[in-house]
């Protein structure tokens, strides 16, 4: 059950974000964003902030962003950029 809904969720978010992802950038640094499947969020590596994606709608108001905890930062630092994509 959980797995099914999760798969649906992923497909949903991916499908909607794809066309948008090409033109979206971080609102603060204007640097590229990367979509993290695991947390369902858009991550700005330049400033270490993640923005939520709610029902396939990316929320890119600076106030919605969350500063990524150090632990997560470490993992993204180990495999620059692409680490999250291959999970």
């Amino acid at each position: 059950m959980v797995r099914g809904s999760r798969a649906l969720h992923l497909k949903d978010a991916g499908a909607i974000s794809k066309a948008l992802l090409d033109i979206l950038v971080c609102p603060l640094s204007k640097q590229p964003l990367r979509f993290c499947q695991e947390t369902q969020s858009l991550i700005s590596d330049a400033i270490g902030v993640s923005f939520p994606v709610v029902d396939g709608i990316p929320c890119l108001v600076p106030r919605d962003g969350k500063i990524i905890e150090d632990k997560e930062k470490m993992t993204s630092a180990n495999g620059p950029g692409s680490a999250h994509h291959h999970r």
């Binding site: 909607i16 979206l24 950038v25 990316p58 890119l60 108001v61 600076p62």
Partner: peptide, 16 residues
């Protein structure tokens, strides 16, 4: 396509 954003911090790539 839908997105939430602030006009003061436009999250759109240049020339797009």
């Amino acid at each position: 396509l839908y997105m939430v954003g602030d006009e003061e911090f436009l999250p759109i790539k240049e020339n797009s």
